[in-house]
Simulated scan of single mutants.
Amino acid sequence: MDVMDLFHLQNRTAIVTGGGKGLGEQMANALAEAGANVVICSRNLEDCQKISEQLVKKGVQSLAITCDITNQADIQAVIDQTVQHFGTIDILINNSGTSWIAPTLEITADQWDKVMNVNLKGMFLFSQAAGKIMAQQGNGKIINISSITGIKGTNPAFLDAIAYSTSKGAVNALTKDLAIKLAQHNIQVNAIAPGFFPSKKTKAFDQTSHIILKRIPAGRFGTDQDIKGAALFLSSNASDYITGQVLVIDGGLISGI
């Protein structure tokens, strides 16, 4: 197989949750550029439609579907529509997520549950539903979006969101265990753990960004382009023998002293 053939995604179908903006949008574009059909879903259908329409104009086959990933009926609707339209589900990127910034000693049970339901429960339910289709096919790729906050504790001066960090640590555990459970079906499950990528979720870092920047060995924050290669790699045949891994993309932040 030619090395470039390892990375093409022609005739494959990907679902990207939360693909209507931010890193999800960039990953959806990366897979589309590699030849994949792309299904974009989130609670905000307007955002999904905007990106899907842009892809269609570029010659990509794409669908936009509304979905609350904490609702199993919504998840199944996305699965059913994807299979009905494309006949297959080859790639799932679990990108949808939420956070709740609050002092650790003050966060409420409801706030905690909201984060866990979206970031962990929803991710498992979508993986389970897509995994059933992939198991029938005998192959598939599941990519879970984690965070470096799930690997290392975070100073509350930078981020006081213990539910988010805990959920991402659980995502890493889910990724590793799901990878073992699904390996028999030739399904690879991996995670991407981004560092600091400016977005709506990181507005809270505006006042401390200069401090954080000094701690990043690469000397810069992540950009939209930094996530695309990793998403393509873990979605393609190039990663067929890689499973249960958490790929950190942080410019060396958690590796530094």
Rank of each mutant, 00 (worst) to 15 (best):
H8V: 15
T98C: 07
L159P: 00
G35C: 11
A231K: 06
I93W: 11
G256P: 03
S147G: 06
T108C: 02
K141R: 15
T175K: 11
L63I: 03
A14F: 08
Q137R: 13
F7P: 05
G150T: 12
D5A: 15
C67Q: 12
L182F: 15
A28P: 10
A28Y: 05
N237D: 15
W100Y: 15
K132Q: 14
D110P: 00
G195R: 07
I162A: 01
F197K: 12
G251K: 13
L159V: 01
Y164H: 10
I107Q: 06
I107H: 11
R12T: 10
G97K: 07
G24I: 10
S42Y: 04
F124I: 04
K141M: 11
P156H: 04
A191Q: 08
V246M: 00
T88W: 06
A173H: 10
K58A: 11
N11K: 15
F158R: 03
C67V: 08
Q61A: 02
K141Y: 09
T149D: 12
N44G: 07
G251S: 12
K176F: 03
G219E: 09
E46K: 00
I242N: 09
I180G: 06
S239F: 14
A183D: 09
I211T: 05
Y164L: 03
A73V: 06
A161H: 04
S235M: 05
V60I: 14
A64S: 14
A34H: 09
S146A: 13
M27E: 07
K168S: 00
L9N: 14
T223D: 04
K21R: 12
I15E: 08
I227V: 01
T202F: 14
L159Y: 06
I162C: 12
Q54K: 08
G222E: 14
K132E: 09
D177E: 08
N94P: 05
S52P: 02
K201W: 15
F196L: 10
S255D: 00
V115Y: 07
N119M: 08
V189S: 09
V171Q: 10
K50Y: 08
T13G: 15
L92H: 09
A77N: 15
F221S: 01
Y241K: 03
G35N: 12
M134D: 11
Q136W: 03
G24S: 13
K141P: 06
I79W: 07
V56T: 11
L23A: 00
D177V: 04
L55S: 04
D160W: 05
Q184S: 15
A173K: 06
N37W: 13
I187S: 03
A32R: 10
I151E: 11
I151C: 01
G87P: 04
N11F: 15
N94W: 05
A135N: 10
L31T: 01
H210W: 14
S42V: 02
Y164C: 09
D240V: 02
H85R: 15
K58V: 14
A218M: 15
V38E: 09
L105N: 11
L9V: 12
R43S: 02
I65E: 01
